[in-house]
Computed example of a mutant assay.
Amino acid sequence: MTEQAGPKDLVRYAIDAERVGFDFEVSSDHFFPWLSSQGHAPYAWSVLGAVAHATERVGLMTYVTCPTIRYHPAIIAQKSATLQILADGRFTLGLGSGENLNEHVVGTGWPGIADRQSMLVEAIEIIRDLHDGGLVDFRGEYFQVDSARIWDLPDDRVPIGVAVSGERGIGEFRPLADHLIAVEPDAGIVEQWNRYESPDTGAESRAIGQIPICWDSDRDAAVARAHDQFRWFSGGWEVNADLPTTAGFAAATQFVTPENVADSIPCGPDLDAIVDAVRPYREAGFTDIALVQIGGASQDAFLAQAAGPLLEKLRTAAG
């Protein structure tokens, strides 16, 4: 999470995660942290460029970038193409409709969900057109592109993942995206996604999920840290997408207790509890799971002490 560590630490964690044996690494793309106690929000694309240079094997991904308000989709097309070259083909562009927390900063307002999804469809169309390599002119309801071309393109098209929260959006986004991104283990969404054919990018479709964890040798310390830095997660995305500031998230979660957080996030040294938390995603048909280890300073201990044994347990459980 770019909200819980500075840029140099994030690069260091990424290197160590590859060394320990993780298969891929995802990065949030935020202008704000969720809560002030998290304390960070470096520019994700600079971090990812450094990580691409400093690693050799792991897949990389934005999880996720909003290509509609803070960024124009033509700029996302250029950035993602450049990053794919730096990563030697290891990068996946994860896209979503965004959160007010990050997008309000450019002062253009925060549209309703229907408009945000329509904007995202247009944005993906523009990105795909530019990744084709030709000169692009585009006039849409939300975006305009005049005589644009991406001059540095990777040999293979950048795969695109899109965040979907319900079955309604699958019909719109599936024809444009290679991979599904979701934060709930909903088998129905995965099944419906897989009924559609992939775009002709050559990428095998993946379903990529995410869960927060808070490993620590001291369970009480883990619960306290999860409550301090991750209680925002309890609001659900219907709430989280619309609040504009860290103060808003602090107010909205003032009555969330440490026990509430511990009930929904595996906290402490029990690795089997993390495996149990991942199981519903595997059973729902997800191919990948991103583990969000809560707390910047705890990453070194997690990577040194817990990550290796946890990976072994997860892979054994997955067969």
Rank of each mutant, 00 (worst) to 15 (best):
K8T: 15
K8N: 15
Y13N: 08
D23T: 04
D23M: 06
S37H: 13
Q38P: 08
Q38A: 12
V47S: 03
V58H: 03
G59I: 07
C66E: 11
R70S: 01
Y71C: 01
Y71K: 00
S80G: 06
T82Y: 14
I85M: 12
D88E: 11
L93I: 11
S97I: 03
S97D: 05
N102S: 12
E103L: 06
E103P: 00
G107T: 15
T108R: 12
T108G: 15
G112L: 13
I124G: 02
E125N: 08
H131G: 01
E141K: 09
S147V: 11
R149Y: 02
L153P: 10
P154T: 07
G166V: 10
P175R: 09
A182T: 02
E184I: 15
I189S: 12
I189G: 11
T201H: 09
R206G: 03
I208Y: 01
W215S: 00
S217R: 11
D228C: 12
F230Q: 07
R231G: 09
W237D: 14
W237I: 13
F249C: 07
F249N: 04
F249S: 03
V256S: 01
A262Q: 11
P280Q: 07
Y281L: 06
G285I: 00
G285C: 03
I289N: 04
V292N: 08
V292A: 09
Q299P: 09
D300R: 15
A301H: 04
F302P: 03
P309L: 04
A317F: 14
A317I: 10
A318G: 09
G319W: 09
G319A: 12
